[in-house]
Nucleic acid binder design. Sequence first.
DNA 1: CTATTTAGGACTATTCTAGTCCTCTTTATT
DNA 2: AATAAAGAGGACTAGAATAGTCCTAAATAG
Lengths: 153, 153
Amino acid sequence: MLRLSKLTDYAIVVLTYMAKNQDGLYSAIEIAKATGVAPPTVSKILKELLKAKVLISTRGAKGGYRLAKTAEKITVASVIGALEGPIALTECSVSNHNHSCEQVSGCEIGGVWGLINQTVFNALEAITLADMLVSVNRRSPQEINIPISSLYR
Amino acid sequence: MLRLSKLTDYAIVVLTYMAKNQDGLYSAIEIAKATGVAPPTVSKILKELLKAKVLISTRGAKGGYRLAKTAEKITVASVIGALEGPIALTECSVSNHNHSCEQVSGCEIGGVWGLINQTVFNALEAITLADMLVSVNRRSPQEINIPISSLYR
DNA sequence: CTATTTAGGACTATTCTAGTCCTCTTTATT
DNA sequence: AATAAAGAGGACTAGAATAGTCCTAAATAG
């Protein structure tokens, strides 16, 4: 199904909520209440997003999280990367630098997986949090072209 | 990590092997030997691809599998769809037609997941088995542009 | 000083995946 | 007609990954 983990799904929900007020400072509990996602889970997600520098945190009482950049600069690819590690559809394309693949003739097509990964990555990199908000408000996102040949440069 | 299952990975390996001789008739055992993937696993994959009409089978002695269409017409998206079901990054976008989402405010962004899914799907639909072969042979695939606005039509 | 809130992990139960195996059906060959 | 080769269709199991919870420590506002 080419599945994305639920945590990533929640992360987008959480970020979309936060992006409604770009400079707002939100506590984990506050976000949990607003989104309906369980508090410990929200907390876990926020920590991951913090580690990936998508968010900035303030500790202590009256602390919370805020977006580290504008919604236009937060891409879906970076959110996925934050929660699931580098985007790579197959094991091979991420780990085949040092050890060779165990398939006899399989990895001849390693280059192809690179192509597929890049294609998907570019698609996800082209969508930002801002687009998400825009979509919620029923307007059209900007035009983006992705020439496949560019992946080879 | 936006992972693709290993079975899908193997499926591409298997199909790429079969595409080298477009009209060839291959038995599961033969493919297993050539690719290094375990025979029962190859068999499982071939059955799935058959169900999805990517392959045609001939039963009985001297039987086997062959490609149902030319390599140019077999897209990566269809192969993924065959092994993992419809391409949908999140639960919501595939099942939200009848029951509403349990998140309080989450599914406002349902339309956005649709956008993301479509973008990824288009990217994968644009790559064919023929591109895989071409890539193995170190040539460039054709130029393809994917305007995001088209996803809204 | 105390309440609040993040930081950083450890931990567990459940779900999913990969992989195997078994039985049945079909067909070519002799 | 008998036999061997091959696919069809599931059932099943072990292991891995995921989702989700919880606990303790550290920081800060008031």
